[in-house]
Simulated scan of single mutants.
Amino acid sequence: MFDLRFPTTLIMMMLIADAAESGRPTVSSTELASKLDNNPSFVRALVVPLVHDGLVTSVRGRTGGLGLGRPASEITLSEIYRSAVAGKRIWDQRDEVPHVCEVTTKACRYFRGLTDEIEDVVLAMLGSKTLADSLADLRKLPPEAA
């Protein structure tokens, strides 16, 4: 099963950035949850590491909400990814298999190295894009056909 925390968190961050560009410094977790077709407690759970990492600010109270911790042009997708997945690797490692031949003895170690290389490439690509870049790219997409 794929982990959906990063894509969901990225959408949420784009919604907060879009609101900031429109002059709204904060967005409520209820509004975000509605737009994500989820519940506010789920949104708040996704926000905890983002606040901890300084990517999002959280203001409590009736007029509070969630805002960007820094300008969207200074937040990279790799920062969002790392915060969202909290150290989880792109692919889970398979538990050790019985060491009955060269392949089974070395396969897990090989896959771990392969995954490390893939993670490095993914993080480098995500590090080259900012939240502002992503929002601009999103706006260039043509509307979907009905």
Rank of each mutant, 00 (worst) to 15 (best):
R24T: 02
R24H: 13
R24K: 10
P25E: 12
P25W: 02
V27T: 10
V27F: 01
S28C: 08
S29N: 05
S29F: 02
S29Y: 01
E31Q: 14
E31H: 13
L32T: 04
L32P: 01
A33S: 08
S34A: 13
D37T: 05
D37I: 03
N38G: 12
N38W: 03
P40N: 11
F42N: 14
V43S: 04
R44W: 04
A45R: 15
L46T: 02
V47N: 04
V48A: 12
L50V: 11
L50K: 05
V51D: 10
V51Y: 10
V51R: 14
V51W: 09
H52Y: 08
G54S: 05
L55Q: 02
V56W: 00
V56M: 08
V56N: 03
V56P: 03
T57V: 15
T57Q: 02
S58V: 01
V59W: 00
R62W: 09
T63C: 01
G64P: 00
L66R: 02
L66W: 03
L68Y: 03
L68W: 00
L68P: 01
L68K: 01
R70K: 15
R70F: 12
A72M: 00
A72C: 01
S73W: 04
S73P: 00
E74R: 10
I75F: 03
T76I: 08
T76L: 05
S78H: 02
E79R: 06
A84G: 08
A86Q: 15
G87Y: 11
K88R: 15
R89P: 07
D92N: 15
R94K: 13
R94C: 01
E96Y: 05
H99R: 14
V100S: 04
C101Y: 13
E102P: 00
A107D: 07
A107V: 15
A107S: 13
C108N: 09
R109T: 14
R109I: 12
Y110K: 07
Y110S: 06
Y110H: 11
F111C: 05
G113F: 06
L114T: 12
T115W: 12
D116H: 09
E117C: 06
I118S: 08
E119V: 14
V121I: 14
A124G: 10
M125N: 11
L126M: 11
L126H: 07
L126E: 05
G127H: 00
S128C: 10
L131H: 02
A132I: 00
D133C: 11
D133W: 10
A136L: 08
D137S: 09
D137F: 06
L138C: 02
R139A: 15
R139H: 13
P143I: 08
E144M: 09
